[in-house]
Design a protein around this nucleic acid. Sequence first.
DNA 1: TCGCACATGTAAACTGTTACATGATTGT
DNA 2: ACAATCATGTAACAGTTTACATGTGCGA
Lengths: 181, 181
Amino acid sequence: MSLKHALLAMLDIDKGSGYDLIKRFDQSVAFFWPSSFQQVYKELTWLEDKGFILAEAVNQQGKPDKKIYQVTDSGGEELQRWLSLPAKEMKIKDTFLIKVFGGQRSTPEQLLEDLHRQQRQHKENLASYKTIAHNLKQLSPAKFKQYALPYQTLKLGIRFEETWLEWSEETELLLSRGDIG
Amino acid sequence: MSLKHALLAMLDIDKGSGYDLIKRFDQSVAFFWPSSFQQVYKELTWLEDKGFILAEAVNQQGKPDKKIYQVTDSGGEELQRWLSLPAKEMKIKDTFLIKVFGGQRSTPEQLLEDLHRQQRQHKENLASYKTIAHNLKQLSPAKFKQYALPYQTLKLGIRFEETWLEWSEETELLLSRGDIG
DNA sequence: TCGCACATGTAAACTGTTACATGATTGT
DNA sequence: ACAATCATGTAACAGTTTACATGTGCGA
């Protein structure tokens, strides 16, 4: 029930096409709300059917046509209604941790290989979040204040990645010394 | 594709009934792989159909009958095959963060109310993880070594909750001072 | 010429949630 | 009396992923 509202919230900040939204997702909420383009298009159609957003067809030359969506009054009300509901609990899904948990059938080598792969990914995430945060900080104080809440969520993303990486270094040491696994 | 393998890994550690597994999930992998009893029973049926696990019916007096599952040879192979595959990226879903992200339509009061609710939840999680960790540390060194990998995943759970709580206190301050929102 | 950015979708399969359903025993 | 624990499921729905599908313009 929430990708719909995430999109609504995103469009409430600024109108845009599906493609725009996907990019904006990747640059912001992706870490706590991952999504795929297929799903985004599907949900946008749903939101339009319900009258929560309105599409304006834009013909372009040299580029495919697109649809610019914006939130309607009823969409704004829906967003506000959703905002007043208690948020659900955070959920994490991490197959790697299952593999660590049940790793007796595995070897330290296999676990380490996977660990390194995950480390690369988490380092990339961290670097990208830091770049976005850095860019936000370049804004004028007035503009920056507009992005205060998104910036706050980014900070949690950065800390989560840092926490993960610290943990992974410790785990790496334990695995490579054979203390574990 | 992963709850199946999480269950398989869990049964590989020790056999048990669906009900047992649910409890063991709650006491261990719940933080990085949440699940419901309905799903667990469904997946166990699937695993049994595939021949990866074997059920032994146990009649009890004073209690409902139950089925004790254990991993078959083919289930062990399947687990090993899965273990050799690269793990997927960690995914977080947190509606509360979407509400923070898109919170301009919200009020600081509304956000704070939700924040407090989330804090309570995260504090409970942290306390429960710490209890489990404490119990593990009471084990004899030999037994403890058997649980080294599960213990390692628990540590990440503890740090994630601590990170979240630190972040939330900072966010609370910003919201209550009106710097944000 | 190869790949990336632009731009949007459908269909099938799989995974997860919510509601419905039952019923004895044990502790407060 | 009431709630929790033990114990297992079905059915309907909602959400997500993977595969299929199309086509232009631009830069290396």
